[in-house]
Design a protein around this nucleic acid. Structure first.
Lengths: 274, 274
DNA sequence: CAAATAGTGTCTCTAAGACAATATCAC
DNA sequence: GTGATATTGTCTTAGAGACACTATTTG
């Protein structure tokens, strides 16, 4: 045992070169767009938080929020810390997307990054945001395969639109990896990270894994269905959605009101059996 | 303010402490056990490669193979390099399990590890292995939930059996995380890593994602079903397995022979539409 | 022929998808 | 009442699970 102590004391890790490690955050929320018609429900879109870079490299480009892993914390704690620093909001959930370690991905040097999808509830975030001059802004997402087999990632906000083009590198074990054909002006390899994250998110949203995280505690089934359709970009008939989701929600005795049409019952997520 | 942080990060990277990064490998193959009865098909078990540690810390304990990430390579390349160094075999597939970064997980210092499941084909590996005195050995795996809700991971080989006990920390987005209650003598946090990896593997084996990787190019449907059942620990009726797999395989006009019973048609994996 | 595995046919039940019909509110 | 969404019912179809049955080889 004292043998081991001696060994550990003399162990010199400084002999090896080491990378800097960061956590990059794909912070997502659902954005409700006001409607012109008082009767119509709001449409929703998926919205991503980007930070305008103030310094080199990629000065002035939009980039994912993120930061360096500190000693004494896990990469998940680092991710949570970064989200709270950027948004002042505690995220509802966190999902690791993978480690991006391609040499040269960061011009500053050897920096590898674990990406996380973080879901924020719209209600919480909107209390905090709104300053148009801020360097942190929410962009609407559109992400789809075009007729040539390329994936087109569009991030838009007001008059700004960035369009990145990606190719599918491979799909293995249900996970899809991308290569960047055109970064669309996004910093670093962030277009690739976002595409990978959205693909994972869509796969999980199909099984209702993450759709609750976008909504407040009480919600209508139509809202829930909207979230799923916004994420997956696939529509289902309301009757069928309700049937499938019924085992995962509990009804309350509250209703929406003042919507210009029949009020909807509010539901809460069913507590998973413990 | 995030401006200033970025600025400092880009210019003073060497002032920050950085972790060592490793790739740890859960190398798996299917082991066929010889049968006493000439008519009976071979039984199979899932088998994991462990390395006996020659130095401190955990000297003499069994540990996952792995090694440090070098500059100029991706973490996937690092994983592949380590597998080939340990086994002289090129793995069929590689699946990232996640980054394990808990402070204190390695007594040598700040070392974080990305774990990978790597599947090796039995036929290839057996040409290389067999030396009983070697520090690298294959252990049979048994992994199940016991009546108290604990997960029991048993790794056995000849007269050696290690039993680790784990608790389920949480399941989020279809991914299960574990805590170690008793490492069973395994080095570092490797019991946790193995449990996490096996859970991922089982989930994917249900959908036939990885079962082909364990077999040679040509196989019988019974062999394929055995692989799935060995991994998932769930049995299905042969008729139903065949129906479900039929879209994923192409039959050849070759048959097994000399088995003491009706010969089986050999199949190959159907090429995925490109 | 016996033992063992290979392979097929079909019944039932459940879940998914499609669609029609009814309910309820704000104006 | 009109326009909108909310909610329920049911028909059809696809797939999973169960089970019975046939086919083929080696010793």
């Amino acid at each position: 045992m004292s043998d081991e102590k001696t060994f550990l004391n003399s162990y010199n890790m400084n002999d090896y070169e080491r990378p800097s490690v960061t956590a990059d955050i794909i912070a997502l929320k659902i954005r409700s767009q006001d409607s012109e018609n008082y009767r119509r429900n709001q449409k929703t879109s998926l919205s991503l938080l980007l930070i305008k870079r103030g310094g080199h490299p990629f000065k002035g480009c939009w980039a994912l929020p993120g930061g360096f892993l500190n000693p004494g914390e896990t990469i998940e704690q680092c991710a949570l810390r970064e989200i709270e620093e950027e948004t002042s909001v505690k995220p509802v959930s966190l999902m690791s997307i993978g480690l991006f370690s391609e040499p040269g991905r960061d011009p500053r040097g050897w920096i590898i990054s674990n990406a996380f999808v973080s879901v924020l509830s719209e209600a919480t975030v909107n209390q905090q945001y709104g300053d148009d001059a801020d360097d942190a802004q929410w962009f609407d997402i559109s992400f789809d395969k075009d007729e040539n087999g390329f994936y087109r990632l569009e991030l838009s906000r007001r008059d700004t639109t960035m369009t990145a083009l990606l190719t599918e590198e491979k799909t293995q074990f249900g996970r899809t990896y991308f290569n960047i054909k055109d970064s669309g002006g996004l910093a670093f390899d962030h277009a690739k990270i976002i595409a990978t994250a959205l693909t994972s998110l869509r796969n999980e949203a199909k099984d209702f894994e993450n759709i609750f995280d976008f909504l407040p505690e009480k919600f209508t089934l139509t809202q829930l269905q909207n979230v799923q359709e916004t994420i997956t970009n696939v529509s289902v008939l309301p009757a069928n959605f309700r049937r499938k989701i019924s085992g995962l929600v509990t009804e309350t005795d509250e209703y929406t009101k003042g919507a210009g049409h029949r009020p909807a019952k509010l539901y809460v997520r069913k507590q998973t059996g413990r």
